[in-house]
């Protein structure tokens, strides 16, 4: 059994129990042990980096230190957490001067960043530790009639120089993993463009307009649902449709699922156990297409 320190972040426990439930159930079923470490904090995502980049890097490094102490690699569910931690990990490993500065800061909290651990997104765990073959073997439901509009979120792919997750212009890992489950991943216009999630709270109008484009484009392309990896994208697109209704008087009803949910469903986990009631846009139409 492969073990990882689970970096849960804030948004998932705060808002999206269905993501956590499905991810824990599915990964455990596939033989991945998730260890919850004490004293982890916010990952220091872009809002924190915007306030002070150095503080942001130090917070990320602090969390990596906890994993280093536990001798575990980190796995994240949230794409945002993945970016903050993986970016900090890469930057500090590459840049000795920066590492020295951050360690000077961390020393006050009794920590020292070594750079001995990896930060992975759970897709990488599925791809490398479980592997497409074993994943396929474990799929017990038929998803073949499901047309999925995948949306990985920006921070799984970019900045690619530091994250090194996938080709930033022609990504395929996520779509391959969707197809591994048996569903069809479709192309839609501006697929790789941002959902605007990070502008929520500062410029809600802009954020919503960006989310709307995404919903419009996926609907146009005939998707049955959008599948995401990031709780922020999820929020923007799922809750966003409710806001679109009130703001633009447009009704879309495009179900938005976390990939972990699709995975749990494909693995045959009972939908009633997945807390799907927390979705704003109901997902019955998707459940109906899963045989």
């Amino acid at each position: 059994m492969t073990s990882y320190a689970l970096f849960l972040g804030c948004t998932i426990p705060a808002r999206q129990p269905s993501y956590e439930v499905s991810a824990r159930r599915a990964l455990t079923k596939l033989g991945i042990e998730l260890v919850d470490l004490a004293n982890m904090t916010c990952c220091a995502p872009p809002p924190v980096q915007s306030l002070d980049l150095e503080t942001g890097l130090s917070i990320a490094a602090y969390n990596i230190c906890l994993a280093e102490e536990a001798d575990l690699n980190i796995v994240t569910l949230c794409t945002g957490c993945f970016e903050s931690l993986a970016m900090a990990n890469a930057m500090l490993k590459e840049n000795e001067k920066l590492k020295a500065r951050v360690n000077q800061i961390l020393s006050n909290a009794g920590k020292e960043f070594e750079g001995s651990k990896e930060v992975k997104h759970y897709l990488q765990v599925l791809l490398n530790d479980v592997g497409p073959n074993r994943l396929k073997e474990n799929v017990s439901k038929n998803l073949s009639s499901l047309k999925v509009a995948s949306f990985s979120g920006c921070h799984l792919l970019r900045p690619s120089a530091l994250l090194k997750f996938d080709d930033p212009e022609k990504p395929y890992i996520f779509d391959d993993l969707i197809e591994t489950l048996g569903a069809k991943s479709i192309w839609y216009r501006h697929k790789l463009k941002c959902c605007g999630g990070l502008l929520r709270g500062y410029a809600d109008d802009v954020a919503l307009a960006l989310a709307r484009e995404k919903i419009v484009n996926t609907t146009k392309a005939g998707a049955d649902c959008i599948v995401t990896l990031c709780p922020f994208c999820f929020l923007t697109l799922d809750l966003g449709q409710v806001l679109m209704k009130s703001t633009f008087h447009e009704e879309y009803n495009m179900p938005v699922l976390h990939y972990s949910e699709l995975l749990a469903l494909a693995l045959g986990i009972d939908p009633t156990e997945l807390a799907l009631q927390f979705h704003k846009i109901k997902v019955y139409s998707v459940l109906n297409k899963i045989g």
Binding site: M40, I59, N108
Partner: peptide, 17 residues
């Protein structure tokens, strides 16, 4: 929901940072 309880947050460490 079958989820473990949340672990404490290292807020003191952050304040030192």
């Amino acid at each position: 929901l079958g989820l473990p309880s949340l672990k404490p947050v290292g807020v003191d460490a952050l304040r030192k940072i």
